[in-house]
Design a protein around this nucleic acid. Structure first.
Lengths: 142, 142
DNA sequence: TATTGTTATACTCTATAACTATA
DNA sequence: TATAGTTATAGAGTATAACAATA
């Protein structure tokens, strides 16, 4: 099999790859009925909870106002909860509820399954090559 | 350099890569003050002009109503123009204006430069490997 | 005086539904 | 009657500005 892989083919491959990943991700979120920002907020809480909304605003790169909205929605759905900050009465502390934790577990499981489906039968050598190419491309894109 | 490349590392690399590409693309569009759909419409015209709006709706996967909006905006900016269809008076034919063509040329040049910046100094062998991995991942994601 | 979160408002992207003109 | 495009409306995602409570 003779493959012509000009730089243009490579770029097209990269763009298709990126698109496919984005679409797959969106499908996953839609199945869980989460917007991208909602999912990222939950995901941030996995590591940062309990977090002030101010902190979440920085982590997500969205305005404090929009964090209010996201937390409102997620808490209406029983996935996170707001508690008053013990020492600063201006602040709210956001944590996942038990149901939020369960959702996070399912998301982690999705992640694991995907990693395995995509890379499970690839040789370590090839994975290393991929990783190297990916890093190089990311660096040049910054 | 000993690299640990578990399937999880690989997936993280893939997700970072995809994100970096998406962000780069968005920056490019923002510089040209185009939304993603506007850019895709222009890009479609490069191959399909002159095109009925109905056709553009199919190519872009957006509603006919939204094509009306996109063409309105692009034609307000002098990038495309609507002409009546010669034989079907319900239809409009959309084509890029001369300025639209110039913008398309600049977009093609961006594309070429990017391909070269990202893959220009990569060995053909490695490009082929990347292409192969990308195709595999895309296939598994569908 | 500076910071946290919220109320009020608005903008962009996109869809659905109802309609008009034409086929 | 079916099709092409448009008017009218709406919803999701997100921002800015003004403000209240607290630090």
């Amino acid at each position: 099999m003779h493959m012509v892989t000009s730089v243009h083919h490579s770029l097209d491959g990269l763009l298709s790859l990126s698109l496919a990943v984005a679409e797959h991700t969106e499908r996953g979120l839609r199945e869980r009925d989460l917007s991208r920002s909602e999912a990222r907020l939950l995901w941030s809480l996995a590591e940062a909870a309990p977090a002030r909304q101010q902190r979440l605003s920085e982590l997500l790169g969205v305005t404090p106002r929009y964090v209010t909205r996201l937390v409102d929605d997620l808490s209406d759905r029983g996935l996170v909860e707001r508690r008053p900050h013990p020492s600063d009465r201006r602040s709210m502390l956001v944590t996942p509820t038990r149901e939020g934790e369960r959702l996070l577990s399912r998301m982690r499981a999705d992640h694991d399954r995907l990693a395995d489906a995509l890379f499970g039968d690839m040789s370590p050598d090839k994975r290393a090559t991929f990783q190297e190419i990916a890093s190089g491309v990311i660096e040049r894109l910054s």
